[in-house]
Each structure stands twice: as C-alpha cells, then as structure tokens.
Design a protein around this nucleic acid. Sequence first.
DNA 1: CATGCGCATTGACAAAAGTCAATGCGCTGC
DNA 2: GCAGCGCATTGACTTTTGTCAATGCGCATG
Lengths: 327, 327
Amino acid sequence: MAYRPADQIVHKAAWLYYTHGLRQDEVAQRLNISRASVALYLRRAREAGIVNISTSTQLFRKDMMARRLEDALGLETVWLVGEEGLTQDPAAEIPTLAASVFLEMVKNGDRVGVAWGRTVYAIADAMAYADRQGVTVVELCGNLGSPYSYRPDQCTMEIARRLNARGLNFYAPLVLSTEELARALREEPVVREQLDGISSCDLALFTVGTLDEDSHVIKCGALGLEELHRLKKQGATGVIAGQIIDAEGAWLDCDYNRRMISADFDAIRAIPRRLMVVQEDEKFEPLLAAINGRFFTHLVLTSGMAARLIEHTDARANEHEPAKATA
Amino acid sequence: MAYRPADQIVHKAAWLYYTHGLRQDEVAQRLNISRASVALYLRRAREAGIVNISTSTQLFRKDMMARRLEDALGLETVWLVGEEGLTQDPAAEIPTLAASVFLEMVKNGDRVGVAWGRTVYAIADAMAYADRQGVTVVELCGNLGSPYSYRPDQCTMEIARRLNARGLNFYAPLVLSTEELARALREEPVVREQLDGISSCDLALFTVGTLDEDSHVIKCGALGLEELHRLKKQGATGVIAGQIIDAEGAWLDCDYNRRMISADFDAIRAIPRRLMVVQEDEKFEPLLAAINGRFFTHLVLTSGMAARLIEHTDARANEHEPAKATA
DNA sequence: CATGCGCATTGACAAAAGTCAATGCGCTGC
DNA sequence: GCAGCGCATTGACTTTTGTCAATGCGCATG
C-alpha cells in the first residue's frame, strides 16, 4: 500500500488515545488539531480496523457462548455449566445452578408458577432454604395421582417449602379419559380460577420434556406407548407443562392435549420471567421446539447443548443469507 | 468455581457495551443496575482483560528511516519510536510499542521463546491481555535464583499470562559454578528437551544486553566485576540470552559462557521470527554485535538509535565502495 | 442478637466525548 | 481567473462517561 500521510495522523491519534490513554483534548493539543477532528479520526480508526476492540472469547468462553445465545434467541439471560472440566458430568451441575439462579429470581411477594419433571424435582431438591415473604407457588399443570416419584404437586410443595412460601395445588388431574370431562372440569369455578391465576404469575420454572419410550410422560403413565407413536406421526416433538407441542412449538391439536388440564400456552407466555432448565442432551429437538414457541425468557443448560444450539442457529442464519457465509 | 454472578454481570455489561454498542445507560437499564455500576464494571472488564483494545502498529513502520534500516540490515520489519515529539523520552515508549508489535506477531498455536532483561519485563508489563489459543511460552535461558526483580521465569510467566498461554520454565539455573556441572546438567533429559525445544519456536522475543558496571548481568549477580573486566579484554561486547558475544556477534569462548545453560545460538537463529527490542541508547555497540550475529529479524528501537545505525552502515558502505560516496 | 467492618452500589456532579452546522480551503471546469 | 463543488476542519452545543463521597447491605465477630 502506498504511503498516505492522511492515514498517518489517524494512526497517531489512535495510538495516543487508545494505547497511551491520553484524552482527546490532549491528543488534539499534541497533534495541533481540534478535538473534534480527533474524535472524527478515532471513529475512522475504529471503522478502518486500526483499532480493535474485542471482548475476550477464550478466557470467558462460557460467558461468551451465553451472550451469543442470548442474542441469537432473544433471551434475557442464559447460564451455562460445564466445559471447565470441574465435574465429570456437566449435567449433574444443572440442578444446582438452576436452583441458585431460580432463588435469585424469586422476589418477595412473587407469584411463582412451577411445572413438573425430573429436572424440576432435582432443582427443588438442590434448592437452598430461603425465607421469602409473601411468595405463592402454584402449579402450571394438573396432577398425577400415580405413585410415581416426581408428582407435580410434590415439585410445587417442595419448592414452596424451600422458599417459605404458600403452595397451591391444582384440584384436578393432569389427563382425563375424555375430552368432554376435561372441558367440563376446566369450567368448574375452582379449577377455572387456578387456570386463570397462571397468567398473573411473576415467574415460572419449567423444563421441556422429550417424547421417547422412556420419557417422563410415558413412565409416569400419562401417555401410552401406542398413543405416543401415533402422536409422533402427527408431529409431536416435546412436552411443555404436560402438553404436547410440535416442532414449531405450537400446541398439537390432538385428543391427548384436549383431554388435559394444564396451563394455557398464552397464559404461560404472559408470565414476564420464565426460566427454562434443560439437563439432558437428548432434549435438543424438544428444546428447539420450545424456543420456537417462545416459551421462556431465561435459560439454564450445559455448554455442550449451548454449542449445538449456536451451531444450529448459525446454520439457519446461513441458510437464509448464504452470502454472509463466506464473509 | 461454579457460578459467579459477579463475573457474569461484568462480562454481560462488557458484551452489551463493546460488542453491541449500547450506551452505558442502556446497559444499566437492561441489567437493572445504576449507570455508575456499569461504568465501574466496564473499567474492571478492561483491567481484567475481558475487553481488548489494540491499535495497529502500522504508524511506526511507515517511516522512511525504518525502511532504510530494513534494507540496510536485511530485516523483515523495523519499528521506530520518537522523532515525532510524541513523548518527552522516546525510550519510555519502547516497551509499549514492543508489546503491541509482539502481540501482533503472536499467532494462535505459536511456540514463543522469551529471553530476559529489564526491557523484556517492561514489555510484559505493558502488554495487553489477549486470548490466544494454544500458545506456549518458553524460556530462552536458564533461571536466576536471586531475588533480583526481573527474573527470567517471571518474564516468561507474565507474558504467558497476558497471552492466555501455557508458560514453560527452564528447570536449570542460568549460570553454574563449574563447566563440568553445566555440561552434565545440559545432558539431563529434562533440560536437554527444553534446550532442544527452542529451535522449534515460531517466534522469539529478546533484547541485547550491555556489559558495563551497571549492566543487567552484573546487577543481577550472574557475572562479577573482575570477571567482567577480564572478559571485556577478550572482546566481550554484548549479551544475548545471558550469553556473551563479541563484536562480530559470535559466541565468546570463555569460562563464563561455558558455565551457562541457555539457548544455543543456532537454535535461536532457527526460529523464523525473532523480535529484538532495544530501549537504551547505551546499547549501540551491543546492538551492532547482535546485528553481526544475525540474531533477529524484526527490530523495535528509538529513532535516535536508528539514525546512528544508518550513519554507521553508510560509513561502512563508503569504506568498502568509496566511489559511491560522491555519486 | 447486636456491633462493626468492608465492600458493592448509587446519586449527583465534573469531565470528556460526540455531533453538527458553519467555515475554510483546495481543486475542477468553464 | 473565477465560480462552484466537495471535503476537511472547527467551535459551540449536547450527550455520554468518569468519579467520588455517601449510603446501604451482608457477613463475620464479639
């Protein structure tokens, strides 16, 4: 490149300002130009790449990934565990982290909605005792009468206990045998009130469930194997508060969902802060569905999953704007 | 450590401010903290190296003198400080510039050899935090056990820290009391391996030392005064990685050098990019010796020294081809 | 359980940086 | 040679950032 004296002064200004830490007026004085010119040169220097301002990637790799996910998914905050090699299994740390995060999110007087699942129960179990004032914990879905160990009401009550909060259970089963019965029950005042109360929550805690033969919904008896296979053909991809969603995160219009007593998805989305916790790596597809459904605003997951998500969203971005791929 | 919300918010603030270009008040609003806190976090982020601001060193090589020196000495690149009246003492800027230049030279995956000296330590100190990947920093010479403030291993480790690199120290002293011991130690597998690893470096950073009564080698106790005088009579002119060279840049065959554990000169010369930094004007003669020894490929020095060098090489050229002097 | 200590946070003010219309200067074309 | 154009530069004003004393909060200690 030819020697352009015009660039020289831009370089000089950048050097004095960024490397030497002089103020703009000092730089101006030193170079015998106005401070306004210095400001202009500095902008040019940044734009031309003479000055590089970057946030560290390697030192804070996890944080970096979290920030990128927040941006890509439009989330409030993302927390990641793993990568650092501190524990053998990063997933094991998820409930601990999620419990801390959740505790920090609960403010006095909050109304908190809690869904159900292995992970939610593990979080409850890992949660420290805190004495919040005036907190109410409500269920986001109906109950399961089965003796299965992680019952929705247990999650709710355990979390309420840890928070020194009032726990309110749904006075209805999760799944009924007929659509008519479910519809009728939903209109019962006491149930209606509980369902309506969901959208007035300040905070929600839930996971997304998978739909495999050893999934939670199957093992707890809510859903039979043959029905599972039929639903999967219809596009069933994941489970949110007991209800089945398709790959787009939309409520799957099926007999099973219609027989369910659980939070209306719009009611869930009306809750301002919604913490999603994903522990198992198998939940990738369901998580994508949940993302599409915009079910959550805060996310706790492993860095492995985070990496897959970033890769996935990048790939999608390139699909849409292939020109950028080469840049 | 598992979950440090303190770091998280600092990183997030830095991300929003520097990567997203939000204003401090916007960041504060987003994070629900005061703007004053944002300003504080950003300062911490800069200090902790979460944010890197670096300026191109182009300015310092766009100089005619630098070009002439490159040609005259057959060097890759020369950077000059001074002349522009930017600072009162040009020498004071040498470490800053050298640090920038050096940072620009270090690529991911590089193996970097670092020698020792006041200047090298000053460079380490002035160096910005950067997050290179897979960089290894090795010592070019043995260690000094003395409590003198600029120890070789400190240089190495500090530079490694700044680069987010792995630092490897020599497991041997710089000078031993007998030649036999030095020879034996050199053949120790662990030391041998370290010595052999020098030639596989991609980049080296070092200075040339003087041999006066207040020189570094004397002050740190490696060399005694009487020995110094004896060696100077033998032609000792400068110091490279602890070892003494004569005016031609050749290894001085003396007891002192033979008692030393340090990089073989051919190993040093096998490193493709070798940055020499000369801060003090007193180092003119040693620098000439180092030039003769072809110890370096890149050079950072003051324009005052550069002028003397050009004058010197011109004079020598005229000696050899006086006819050209009149042309 | 009260007390004191230290550190994080904040509000308010001072300093610095960004912006933009007005000006000046050099260059081109007539 | 001169008018017109475009771009660099600047002063004056606004916005943004830095700073610091005051405050508050949590934590450990007596």
